[in-house]
Design a protein around this nucleic acid. Structure first.
Length: 195
DNA sequence: GCCTCGATTGACT
DNA sequence: GTCAATCGAGGCA
């Protein structure tokens, strides 16, 4: 039945679908926690590379000691105070890049850390960790501040309704209080980074 | 201007 | 299981 569907048509279909399903800036202009949960199951796209988001963490500003924005805007963290729908990429531990998406409305700090992906293209990408996925996807400091609605780095929507598990955040020296259940991941997904 | 620490990883005992 | 690598941003004197 689909054997007469030409490559061109497939290409067109894929292209339309990618265009139609790119998440709009509005998606990010909401509560950080909500965005973190809803990003699960969505597809992170960077050029040809694609992966399903399976684990995220939410970071606020004021009142969140674990956030870079805790003490107010700095040259690095000011992007978190900026418009939503942008990438916040930062360098840590001397060798590691972290990918975040800026949330909340302009002026209010918030970001969602992408902790793990299930690779789609290439399938053997090692993306089960926040620093590993940036390396696998070729994401680095030059992507800091990238607009997710117009650049080659973006997030595609998905119909998937994953089973979401809520947990405490990982790896923080501060702000990991047990009441802060700001980590979300897809239940039973083997790519979740949790140790 | 100096000093400490980090939203991690990978290697090693 | 434990621990070192590695460098820029941020805090403080």
């Amino acid at each position: 039945m689909a054997d007469y569907m030409t490559a061109a048509k497939l290409q067109q279909k894929r292209s339309n679908s990618a265009k139609d399903s790119r998440l709009p800036g509005e998606f990010f202009a909401r509560n950080t926690k909500t965005v973190a949960k809803e990003l699960l199951g969505k597809i992170l796209v960077h050029g040809k590379k694609r992966g399903k988001i399976v684990e995220t963490e939410a970071y606020f500003g004021t009142g969140d000691p674990g956030s870079h924005a805790f003490r107010g805007p700095t040259p690095r963290s000011k992007i978190m105070f900026g418009p939503p729908g942008h990438a916040y990429v930062y360098f840590t531990y001397g060798n590691h890049w972290m990918l975040n998406f800026v949330c909340e409305r302009d002026g209010k700090p918030g970001a969602v850390l992408i902790r793990a992906l299930e690779p789609i293209e290439p399938k053997d990408a090692r993306t089960n960790g926040p620093a590993k996925l940036t390396k696998a996807f070729g994401i680095s400091g030059k992507h800091n501040g990238t607009d997710l609605t117009s650049g080659k780095l973006c997030v595609e929507n998905s119909d998937e309704r994953p089973k979401i598990v809520t947990a405490t955040r990982i790896g923080l020296a501060k702000g990991k209080g047990d009441d802060l259940k700001l980590r979300f991941y897809i239940k039973d997904n083997g790519w979740v980074s949790r140790k």
